[in-house]
């Protein structure tokens, strides 16, 4: 048998193309694309716990969401997580990255390793560590706060609806600021040193150089950082599930925990699908934006 395939111009996908492509494509279609389509389809039905009995409900699940104050509360809490995380994680991440990039003669690698480390811990473990730290009897936090002459909250750090979400924002900041720092640091290291040297000759140093060289140089990375944080703020689930389960009195309820509660605790699969579609649309839109910005740089 003579092999003539080399002489032929490749016009379309041949067998070997599909052999290499099928496993990845199959898994993605089976476990991502089909469930996403089913979530959209399911949002127009009433589905009980048994989940075999689908009854067409039209837009009822969506009108229910529009009239459900807890849905709006959850969405509001997601927005607070998003804005708070951008301010804290991207904000402090930028400052830390700038310091590690040019501010320290030595020790940058050690500091980077330490500050980034919480990112690789499981959020469940992080949540549990902080739960014990904030425990009213054995926790380090109350002892510390009292030692400083202040009064810890009487209902506990996560038991007070007025502060619970802010406490969760601080835990998220503890875990993810290092991630933002590393991301932004990679952007900073891409800025040519000569730019700073030239600017220094013109008398621009410190904050002035930061504003005119550093910020424009990491513009795209900052946009990506903000988008990743935004997506993270909408997707937040583990941290809240392991600390408050959305309580007290829905004060920390977010879309992720509310979907879980409606679907797996209350058995309202159809309604939970409608909330899922809202989350899906937000995530896909933001993910698409992220890739557009990434591609441009």
């Amino acid at each position: 048998m003579s092999d003539t395939s080399l002489a032929k111009p490749v016009t379309g996908p041949d067998a070997s193309t599909w052999i290499l492509l099928t496993p990845a494509l199959g898994l993605v279609i089976l476990f991502i694309v089909i469930p996403a389509l089913l979530a959209i389809a399911g949002s127009f039905f009433t589905i009980g716990i048994g989940s075999t009995n689908w009854q067409f409900a039209g837009l009822a699940n969506y009108t229910r969401a529009l009239n459900d104050p807890i849905f709006w509360l959850a969405l509001r809490n997601n927005l607070i997580m998003v804005v708070g995380s951008i301010v804290l994680q991207v904000g402090f991440g930028t400052v830390l990255a700038a310091i590690l990039d040019r501010g320290l003669p030595r020790g940058s690698t050690l500091f980077r390793t330490i500050i980034f480390a919480p990112m690789v811990m499981s959020t469940i473990a992080v949540a549990l560590i902080w739960l014990v730290i904030m425990d009213p009897n054995v926790g380090a936090l109350n002892t510390l706060v009292k030692a400083l002459g202040m009064q810890p909250p009487t209902q506990g750090w996560l038991g007070d609806p007025d502060i619970a979400l802010w406490v969760i924002l601080v835990i998220a900041m503890w875990q993810y600021t290092g991630f933002m720092m590393v991301l932004i640091l990679a952007g900073l290291q891409g800025i040519p040193r000569e730019l700073y040297e030239a600017a220094a000759l013109d008398g621009a140093r410190g904050l002035k150089a930061f504003r005119h060289i550093t910020l424009p140089g990491i513009r795209n990375v900052l946009i990506v950082a903000v988008l990743i944080t935004t997506i993270g703020g909408f997707k937040v689930f583990d941290l809240i599930f392991a600390t408050t389960r959305g309580g007290p009195a829905n004060a920390t309820q977010v879309l992720g925990t509310y979907i879980y509660q409606q679907a797996f605790n209350l058995g309202n699969m159809g309604y939970a699908n409608a909330i899922s579609v809202v989350l899906l649309l937000i995530a896909v839109l933001l993910g698409w934006l992220q890739l557009q910005v990434s591609r441009r740089s």
Partner: peptide, 18 residues
């Protein structure tokens, strides 16, 4: 395109059918 779209789908949003 399908694979990149898959990148944007969070597991929380499709957890019920999945």
């Amino acid at each position: 395109l399908v694979i990149v779209a898959g990148f944007a789908v969070p597991v929380q949003a499709v957890i019920i059918p999945l």
